[in-house]
Simulated assay, not measured.
Amino acid sequence: MEIRYASHPNEVKKFETTRLREEFLIETLFVPDELQLVYSHVDRFITGGVIPLANAIKLEADPKEMGAAYFLERREIGIINVGAVGSITVDGILHEMKPKDCLYIGLGVQEVIFASVDAAAPARFYFNSTPAHHAYPTVKVEIENATPVHLGSPASSNERTIYKYIHTAGVKSCQLVLGLTILKPNNMWNTMPCHTHNRRSEVYFYFDMPADGVVFHLMGEPEETRHLVVRNEQAIISPSWSIHSGVGTSNYTFIWGMAGENQIFDDMDAVAMQTLK
């Protein structure tokens, strides 16, 4: 498990590209038959990924870093399949996971096992986990049953659909909020005009990008912005004080996960375009 520490915005102003990437960019989340985990001190977020091939992979705690007997002893988790068909077995109960299906698993579940139906076309499970204080039931949500919100327009190059999975009017959780956003073809911008939300942090995971495609992810305080070049299946840790927006060389899809003081999706502080620097 890799550990990332929190950074003060005054410090981040002085970071050069390499340091910015080391602090905020998660470059590798998928290694065949290995569980990849990044533990951030920002809201105690764990971001991870796994590609099970011939063998099933168990979600296991790092006893030294987590101080837990099993992964969900004090946590909850939201998982989205960004690959081919697979399955997740939760304390002996199997859940088939098609592309873009989401599975929420609550506090106290002791065994979570990831598997692919076909090793030649494996599932790719991306997940966010946060601390929990109450046990909510395991719930699977297929993308067609998620709560869609259509936003943007071709004129501003940001026509997109937001699919909410884990939120106050959907799957119940202690603090995790999770969903994904799909940009329509010929649209490149997300979350612009931008915002901050000092009451919770966020992790962005970009995927469905071509091999030669990139997203320029914007971060930093509104009057002191920076950018990170993000490639397919890479993630950004976005602290609460930072904007989180991006523009790609083509359309793309991204998963957003949030955690913090509240779960109200619309609780955000808008940033006027004239303020950005």
Rank of each mutant, 00 (worst) to 15 (best):
M1L: 10
R4D: 03
S7A: 14
N10G: 13
E11V: 15
V12M: 10
K14G: 07
T18F: 06
R19N: 02
R19K: 14
R21A: 00
T28Y: 08
T28R: 13
P32A: 14
D33W: 05
S40Q: 05
H41A: 15
R44H: 11
R44A: 08
T47C: 13
G48P: 01
G49Q: 07
L53S: 10
E60D: 06
P63H: 00
A69M: 06
F71G: 00
E73G: 01
E76R: 02
G78M: 08
V82F: 08
A84K: 12
A84C: 11
T89D: 10
L94G: 01
H95R: 06
H95A: 02
E96W: 06
K98S: 01
D101W: 08
G108N: 04
Q110N: 03
Q110A: 05
V112W: 05
S116D: 12
V117E: 07
A120S: 11
A120N: 08
R124K: 13
F127W: 14
K140V: 00
T147D: 13
P148L: 10
P148S: 11
V149Y: 00
H150Y: 15
L151T: 13
G152Q: 14
A155G: 01
S157H: 13
R160V: 12
K164P: 02
Y165G: 02
I166P: 06
H167Q: 05
A169H: 14
L178M: 10
T181Q: 05
I182H: 09
L183F: 11
P185L: 15
M188R: 15
M188Q: 10
W189I: 13
N190Y: 15
T191L: 12
M192I: 11
H195C: 13
H197I: 00
R199H: 08
S201A: 15
V203C: 07
V203R: 05
D208F: 02
A211S: 11
G213H: 14
L218Y: 14
G220D: 12
P222V: 00
E223S: 06
E224D: 15
T225W: 09
R231A: 04
R231G: 07
N232L: 11
I236C: 00
S238W: 05
S245T: 15
S245F: 09
V247Y: 13
G248W: 08
S250P: 05
S250V: 05
N251A: 13
W256M: 11
G260S: 04
Q263V: 05
I264S: 08
F265G: 08
D266V: 09
Q274K: 11
